[in-house]
Amino acid sequence: MEAKVHECGQMTEKEQYSLLEQSIKDFEYREDNLIQILHMAQAIFGYLPAEVQKFIAEKMDISLSHVSGVVTFYSFFSTQPKGKYKIQICLGTACYVRGGKKIVDALKDELGIDIAETTPDRKFSLEVMRCIGACGLAPAISINDQVYKRVNPKKIHEILSQYE
């Protein structure tokens, strides 16, 4: 399963839905497996738009409002597509006291989006994390897997400009 998910970027939409249907089948169409199924769906599609939620509801014979209720309850699930580059700002205690909030504001200004949103060109998306384990380097952000240490608002533009 891992390998398949890893290849998701190259999958056609048809392949994505057929993989999702297989997952639902593997989880025996059971409502108490809904959260696991949603995890699989998010791994396959990158996010959980209404069409994917509808597909899941229909295959499992449950209501769309219930699926949507679960999706919107857990912050791990996203109904917005993620950007090519996922920016995570640490707001754990150390980063917070060393000005993490200012980094959030600077990134929001620079990108023109709010937390949990993605830029219209789908290049960047913005998320907040609680501690990424880099407290000695606070305040820290990570973009995809690259961690930036002792960030200050003035550095933001320069950091983002490295991403094409």
Partner: peptide, 20 residues
């Protein structure tokens, strides 16, 4: 089955979900 709790905590809203 169209009315369910959407979102959580202070943002909780009873409704059909998505943009319905």
């Amino acid at each position: 089955k169209i009315l369910n709790a959407q979102e959580r905590g202070f943002a909780t809203l009873i409704g059909p979900g998505n943009d319905l």
